[in-house]
């Protein structure tokens, strides 16, 4: 990536073990040999540039509430309308269009399984199209971040 060395370290080295201390940015500054103000300023700049989505806890799937991956095969001329309808729902936190006959992919998260199923049913009713429900059966990856 074409960012400064400190930006790369902030994004790469702190994907986990972000300090759980009163002044975490000061702790990072000590490790990197810079100032707390500089660390906060760089993180804010990375967020403004869109390179940093957020800093915070990443929750294990199903640790809180229930969720599923859902998919739909939507004709090209209906993609825009159906995608807009899906993305507008608060229970949908990811929605991607992918190159495949099954072209709309989204994650539904709600308080429990019944609530998740109700969202899928509502989307089927509103669109008149089948929703493929692909709930997680096992996770084979401990998410420790992604080497940049």
């Amino acid at each position: 990536m074409d960012s400064s060395p400190i930006d790369l370290r902030l994004l790469n080295d702190y994907q986990r073990n972000f300090p759980l201390t009163a002044r975490p940015f000061a702790a990072i500054a000590d490790e990197l040999g810079t100032s707390e103000a500089e660390v906060i300023e760089r993180f804010a700049a990375l967020r403004a540039e869109g390179k940093l989505a957020r800093i915070g806890p990443v929750i294990r799937p199903h640790a809180v509430g229930a969720s599923t991956l859902a998919a739909m095969a939507v004709p090209p001329d209906e993609v825009e309308a159906i995608a807009t309808l899906i993305a507008a729902r608060a229970e949908v936190n990811h929605c991607y269009e992918r190159e495949h006959p099954v072209n709309l992919w989204f994650v539904v998260t709600a308080a429990d399984e019944t609530a998740v199923n109700a969202v899928l049913t509502a989307i089927e009713l509103h669109t008149g199209r089948k929703v493929i429900d692909l709930p997680l059966l096992a996770a084979y990856h401990i998410d420790l971040g992604f080497p940049l």
């Binding site: 990536m1 074409d2 960012s3 902030l10 994004l11 790469n12 702190y14 994907q15 986990r16 073990n17 972000f18 759980l20 993180f43 540039e49 869109g50 390179k51 940093l52 989505a53 957020r54 800093i55 915070g56 806890p57 990443v58 929750i59 294990r60 640790a63 809180v64 401990i142 998410d143 420790l144 971040g145 992604f146 940049l148």
Partner: peptide, 20 residues
């Protein structure tokens, strides 16, 4: 929650797409 693995990690969540 970290110890109980409810939280997998606390950290920076990069936007991979914007990083190339």
């Amino acid at each position: 929650m970290l110890e109980a693995r409810v939280i997998r990690r606390i950290g920076a969540v990069p936007n991979h797409y914007r990083l190339g």
